[in-house]
C-alpha cells in the first residue's frame, strides 16, 4: 500500500564538465512510496524551480527501463539498490522513512560529467562505430530463412543483445572497464552466422577502441553482471576473450 515518507537527498551538483562539483543536501517531505525515483526527482526539481533555483540535471527518457538513458549512482549502486531494473523503474518504496539517499553521477574516466548527474556516454557509441555491426548494406540480402539458426544460439544471442547501453557496468566496475558492454555486442554477433564472417575483425577493433578511450582492464570481479539491469552474463566476456585471443593468434 501507498505510504508517505520523508527523505534527505545528498545530490552531486556540478555546473559543467570543467567545474568542480560538490554535494548539496535537500530535504523532501511527503513522498509517495508509489512514485518512481525519477518522479521524486521531478518533485524535487519543481520545488527548486518554485524557490527560483536551478533544477538538477539528470538523464532520462523512456522511463520504462529500455532506452538506457537514465543513469545515477544511488546509495552505492548504479540504478539504485533494487536489482534488475534501471533508475526509472526504481520506486520510492525501496527506501525507508527518514533515509538519506546519496545520488552521484556515473564515475569513470571515459564518462565525463556534463552537468550535475548527467554524463557523456559517447564512448559507447564510438566503440559501436568502430565495429559493432554486420557490414551489410540495405537491400540485396538473402531471405530471412535462408540460414537456419538453432533456437539455443538465437536465444543466447538475444540475451546478449538485451544490453541497453546504459553504462552501469562501467560505472559499477572498480576498474572502469567496459568489457561487459563490448562483450555483449561481440558475443551477440559472433554467435549468429550473419555476424560470424567478420567476428575476428570486430573483436579486435572494438577492443582496440575500448582501450583507446581509456576504459580499464577487466579483472573479473563480476560487479558489472551483478549491477546490470538486464542481467547480461559475464560468460559473454569469456566469449569476447576467446574471440579476441583466437583472432590475434591467427594473425
Amino acid at each position: 500500500m501507498e505510504k508517505i515518507i520523508n527523505v534527505t537527498l545528498k545530490v552531486w551538483r556540478q555546473a559543467g564538465p570543467k567545474a568542480s562539483g560538490k554535494f548539496e543536501t535537500y530535504k523532501l517531505d511527503n513522498v509517495s512510496t508509489d512514485s518512481s525515483f525519477l518522479e521524486m526527482m521531478d518533485v524535487l526539481n519543481e520545488k527548486l524551480i518554485g524557490e527560483r533555483k536551478e533544477p538538477i540535471a539528470f538523464d532520462h527518457d523512456c522511463r520504462e527501463g529500455i532506452c538506457g538513458m537514465c543513469s545515477m549512482f544511488i546509495n552505492g549502486h548504479p540504478h539504485g539498490p533494487d536489482g534488475e531494473i534501471t533508475t526509472c523503474q526504481l520506486h520510492m518504496r525501496a527506501f525507508k522513512d527518514g533515509e538519506t539517499i546519496t545520488i552521484e553521477p556515473w564515475r569513470s574516466a571515459a564518462f565525463p560529467v556534463i552537468k550535475d548527474l548527467m554524463v557523456s556516454r559517447g564512448a559507447f557509441d564510438e566503440i559501436i562505430q568502430a565495429g559493432g555491426f554486420v557490414s551489410v548494406n540495405t537491400g540485396g540480402v538473402p531471405d530471412g530463412n535462408a540460414i537456419a539458426i538453432g533456437k539455443d544460439i538465437a536465444d543466447e544471442a538475444m540475451d546478449a543483445a538485451t544490453c541497453i547501453g546504459c553504462g552501469a557496468c562501467a560505472a559499477a566496475c572498480k576498474n572502469g572497464s567496459a568489457m561487459l558492454f563490448v562483450a555483449a555486442k561481440v558475443s551477440q554477433l559472433a554467435l549468429l552466422p550473419q555476424g560470424k564472417v567478420e567476428a575476428a575483425h570486430r573483436a579486435k577493433v572494438m577492443v582496440a577502441k575500448m582501450d583507446e578511450l581509456g576504459f580499464g582492464n577487466c579483472t573479473n570481479t563480476g560487479a558489472c553482471e551483478a549491477e546490470c539491469p538486464k542481467n547480461v552474463s559475464i560468460s559473454h566476456i569469456a566469449r569476447l576473450n576467446r574471440e579476441f585471443l583466437s583472432a590475434k593468434f591467427r594473425d
Binding site: A109, N220, T221, A223, E225
Partner: peptide
Amino acid sequence: NYRARGGQAYAVTKNQESVTWTSQ
C-alpha cells in the same frame, strides 16, 4: 585501472552479494 576510474571517487559504494571481496 586506477586512472580509468576517473579523478573523483564515489562517496558511497556497496557491493552486490555475488561480488566477492577477494575479487576486488
